[in-house]
Design a binder for these strands. Structure first.
Lengths: 202, 202
DNA sequence: CGTTTTTTCATCTTTTAGGGTGAAATTATA
DNA sequence: TATAATTTCACCCTAAAAGATGAAAAAACG
């Protein structure tokens, strides 16, 4: 059974530990606790979390919001804000990051659980017909895909022909064919249909 | 075909036995009958059921709902409620556990079978990406697929070439091409890659 | 700055896919 | 038993995919 990896970004150790302990009891798994945004960025890069819990105000600044923006733009995982008594301006900025949920402190375990579930549900629904993330694919294969190979795979995913891919990427069809050839080698599949199948059941 | 293990949580022995007997006749397998929630938890832990049938009211209490919550949160297998004439409040609570289905007593074998199939199908779809049943596909398209067309689609799903399909089905490649041509028309797709994509996000 | 990886492209060949048309054999069913 | 639907097959053709080989730019990296 695949456990959900939760990244906790929270500068109050007591709260962070509490959450971490609770998560271990239900079948979530802590992907790490970050007490500042630098650590958060590092953990996002290296620990492959599935969802993040973000305190809006880390160490007095609004770093939680910065982390949220990076998550939304780059890591594309759902995130939930842990809010205490923030001012209106901070909350407005937080809203603009389109979070998957808010939990107001002090919160109970039931709130936390249902927020996590709802966020994961929403995220799963939004991404149900899309290709997994490059990092996710690369975790499952021997030789990692390059950026261009991943782009080709994504377009194969949408049923594009080599010609269409060449046009969209502004390169020759020969280039596309090379990428696809290497892609098939790395995925160890004979054709695009099985490539789609393989990546979908990753 | 791998047999599906069904856990029955039902405090009326007559009904429980009836269900158990019926399941043995179709290709399901009883993973045990629990007459109370304690036994249910024990069986969930030790008998690895694939799906559960839950009477909402076990021994006058609402233990069926508690069992459902644990299944959803911990065991993540699909479950179906067996309801009799429960009050609104109980039903509301049951709904909150997001069950995969309800069967209202008295129910016939056909209802039970179709509920089980539907629940297993939904769960399979949520967790991996195998090809849906023919009936499920036909509910979503204008002109229903024929048996042979569905067989071809299934093999396309596994990445087979027309040649391989012809060999497996002991027919000429021309026949396969005809089936696929009609398949594409009915699914309204231009090629096999998009066919896979379309059926997957049905 | 040199080395490695990635990205780019070409040319050639074989296989597979897909579209069009027609039609016979089989099966279901009214 | 007519009638309809399904399954079977044979041609035709063009487009697309895939495999093999080689190699030059471009970017990343130490």
């Amino acid at each position: 059974m695949s456990e959900v990896r939760v990244l906790i970004v929270e500068d109050e150790p007591i709260i962070a530990e509490d959450i971490s302990d609770f998560l271990e009891n239900i079948d979530f798994k802590s992907a790490g606790i970050a007490y500042d945004s630098e650590t958060a960025f590092d953990m996002l890069l290296n620990r492959n979390p599935d969802i993040a819990l973000l305190d809006i105000t880390i160490e007095g600044s609004r770093n939680g919001i910065e982390v949220a923006q990076v998550i939304r733009d780059k890591y594309k995982i759902p995130f939930i804000f842990l809010t205490s008594h923030s001012d209106k301006e901070t909350l407005d900025q937080a809203k603009k990051t389109l979070p998957y949920g808010y939990i107001v402190k002090p919160f109970n375990e039931k709130d936390l659980l249902s927020s996590l579930e709802m966020a994961l549900f929403r995220h799963a629904n939004e991404n149900n017909n899309s290709i997994p993330k490059l990092e996710q694919i690369n975790k499952s294969i021997a030789t990692p895909l390059t950026e261009k190979e991943y782009v080709c795979l994504s377009q194969i995913f949408e049923g594009a022909t080599n010609k269409q891919m060449a046009e969209k990427q502004f390169v020759s069809i020969n280039t596309i064919k090379t990428h696809i050839k290497n892609l098939f080698l790395k995925l160890d599949v004979p054709n695009r249909t099985t490539a789609v199948q393989k990546v979908l059941v990753l």
